[in-house]
Write a protein that binds this DNA or RNA. Structure first.
Lengths: 253, 253
DNA sequence: TTATTATGTTACCTGCCGAAAGAAGAAACC
DNA sequence: GGTTTCTTCTTTCGGCAGGTAACATAATAA
């Protein structure tokens, strides 16, 4: 088994259980614990895992449970700004996809007042949020709920997307690189995102600056596939210039 | 269990109850109180908890804002009791369907500790509830989200159910009548419930007394299709007798 | 081949955990 | 109010599992 393959496998296990134990992984992959430690050190460097004593937990920006109060207030300004900017791209009556994630959740909150929307999402929190306070028609993708994240994955979701077409898709991404484009540690999530991109007229990438210069294992899309990028001011200007030169409408909020 | 995992768990308990007792946590997590103290010292250092004698409270002292409005205001005690009774019917490793509803949500809360379950539901709140605090595999049915209810309906859900088989199905019902059986005001919901009944080995009807002697529009099932009925003591004994005479294991909690 | 990367092994270090004992609180009692 | 009693907290220690670093070896690439 190739090292990259093994790391991919580790990430899969992480995605599945949202945590792993080194000893268990070492036995399963038939390598020494030392090797797994080295792998995890690498994955942590890439921001894809968060090491703990005895193992690692999934890095999702919130690697630990935070009280609701502070969860609400962490980066709320940034996300609210991204949400408001995203709203400008949406017209009444639009059909849109909201990818799973905290930034897209902020978008959901920002578009509650827009009339007559149809929203497709695989994030249960987004679905409930819009269900409670907006008049949008919300379609939730079905499938296996990913532990700890409240998002669905699976072939059912893929099938559903095969039969629809939407005006606009708001995509979240955990890893963005100028050469590699958008990548994702999980094969299933990557496939779902690919499908989302396929069925949308317009692709909007929404992401904060921490996701740049990172590479994960599965390719989702090239940067040129993106129509609009909305991000915060933490990205360095050379990168922004490079992205703009690809013809992407890049908005810093 | 990893130390980091345990601390996460402690924070979850804190979020839920806004206060915890060391002794209780120690027993629940199966470690010594000393360990919990150390964990709390750590969490306090990070500003996530505030230690008190015998336990800890949320740092800001405020009660957690319930993230999703729950209409679960009526008959809470009855529902909790029904949930506990329902748990007795479930064994480790079971596959089950939880119909949408507040009573079934109570069941979800009651079965969090049962290991190795696979749960299928069309209620987003149930999916999120189990996703957060249990190790169950949760499948959420996809489709159009019913405004204000947070439940999904549609052909996708029907298709999904066509391909599975479960050990046990917990069915909620808004209207029960001795002659008409179980009825429902919505054609789509009724069809979904019919499908659920079809794919389950055992059907458990869970409902509080307020749903009796009511008739709705669409027929879902006859009472004789039910294996077990769990309800509260508000149903009059003649009705209970009549139901028991149909061979239904009727449990009053 | 030579340089590079990947892996395992060893020795040593650190962090985690529970037990025990004394200190500090809280509660109950006179 | 003050003393007693019980609980909870802190400190300290030892044992142990996990982590680190350095080195040796094997696999791979140039």
């Amino acid at each position: 088994m190739l090292p990259a393959e093994r790391r991919n496998h580790i990430l899969k296990m992480l995605n599945k259980n949202s945590k792993i134990e080194i000893e268990v992984v070492a036995v399963e992959l038939n390598v020494s614990p030392m090797t797994i430690r080295r792998d995890l050190a690498l994955l942590e460097e890439q921001g894809l895992a968060y090491r703990t004593h005895g193992g690692a937990v999934l890095y999702n920006g919130l690697h630990r449970e935070v009280p609701y109060k502070s969860k609400e207030t962490t980066n709320i300004d940034e996300k609210e700004r991204i949400g408001r900017e995203a709203r400008k791209l949406i017209k009444e009556g639009y059909t849109l996809i909201l990818d799973a994630g905290t930034t897209t959740l902020a978008i959901a909150r920002a578009i509650k007042e827009v009339k007559n929307l149809t929203v497709i999402t695989n994030d249960l929190k987004i679905a409930l949020e819009l269900n409670d306070d907006s008049d949008a028609n919300v379609y939730c993708l079905g499938g296996l709920v990913q532990k700890g994240l409240g998002i669905t994955l699976g072939s059912e979701a893929q099938d559903f997307l095969s039969n629809i077409r939407v005006d606009i898709c708001f995509l979240a991404a955990p890893a963005i690189d100028l050469d590699w484009g958008i990548t994702n540690p999980s094969m299933e999530k990557a496939n779902l995102k690919k499908k989302m991109i396929k069925v949308a007229d317009q692709i909007i990438l929404v992401t904060d600056h921490t996701k740049f210069y990172k590479k994960a294992f599965v390719h989702v899309a090239d940067l040129k596939d993106i129509d609009v990028l909305i991000t915060d001011s933490g990205v360095d200007s050379k990168t922004i210039e490079a992205i703009r030169s690809l013809g992407i409408d890049t908005r810093i909020v």
